[in-house]
Design a protein around this nucleic acid. Structure first.
Lengths: 154, 154
DNA sequence: GATGAAAGTTTCGTCCT
DNA sequence: AGGACGAAACTTTCATC
């Protein structure tokens, strides 16, 4: 499970791509002082082994009218398999939820919810409160992003 | 600030790219039933206007030995401009912090911290506790990801 | 906004060290 | 393992409708 399978060359490729996901193989190769052939072989291997899970464009939420990010702590009524599965399925269906983890501490889940405004948030809260397995939620509104989607420390 | 500047074609381009950041212009055009020329013009405009902030590879944290994600609530001793600026500069320097927001509620900041293991977490905690402006922290360990880095609801 | 052609890149198979 | 070469495919850019 650790990174023993990855040498420093692999890590350089991954680091380059997590900073600019549209780099071509030639550009990566140049950046890490390797010729394109072995660089492409490594890249394909990293993709096939799902070390690279995919690529995505980072969009500016504010510019898109999604001005409100809310972190929501959720406590369930019961931790039966049905409750857990039902809640998680519901969360996966909700497009406003962009991240969701089970967490240690007093809450069961921590969700990151993205909506346009307070009205959108109200609509979403009503949805989640209609889930019978939800006991309690606590919302913390993001006021300002200090650091967003930074690269992983490789 | 709202999305009045973006028509449904723009949104389709953005949605395609947030799901697959390596799509070529030709592929996007095909996917949204537009010819490549106007599609590329729109894409470049969206990049120049920073609606698209960048592109990144999504990496599998576990495969890279970064098995531990922790959400940390931080309270500052004071909210003077110096304290705030100092704390935020420190957070931006710390590679383990991949996300940081100021939030409403009892805490001042919510951080997402990525480390290899408990030892790495301990090292990071010591760093943050050495900052004089930090009054108190509360850590919630992510036990399992239910949804990670999902596309924005466009 | 669509089409088509030219120029430039990228990818990828193959072979060699 | 890394490096080199060439063919095929693709992308971008441009002119034109």
């Amino acid at each position: 499970m650790s990174q023993e399978k990855f040498d420093s060359t692999d890590l350089k490729i991954l680091d380059a791509l997590q900073r600019d996901g549209r780099l071509s193989n030639v550009d990566i190769a140049e950046q890490i002082n390797l010729s394109p052939s072995p660089c492409l072989r490594r890249l394909r291997r990293l993709e096939e082994e799902a070390v690279i899970e995919g690529y995505k464009a980072r969009l500016n939420r504010n510019r898109l009218g999604l001005a409100m990010t809310v972190f929501v702590q959720v406590k369930l009524r019961s931790h039966s398999a049905d409750s857990v599965a039902g809640f998680e399925a519901a969360v996966q269906q909700m497009e406003a939820v962009v991240n969701a983890h089970t967490v240690s501490g007093s809450a069961d889940y921590l969700l990151e919810v993205v909506v346009a405004d307070l009205e959108g948030y109200d609509l979403w809260v009503r949805q989640i409160q209609q889930l019978s397995m939800v006991r309690e939620i606590e919302s913390n509104f993001a006021l300002r992003a200090v650091k967003a989607d930074a690269p992983l420390p490789l």
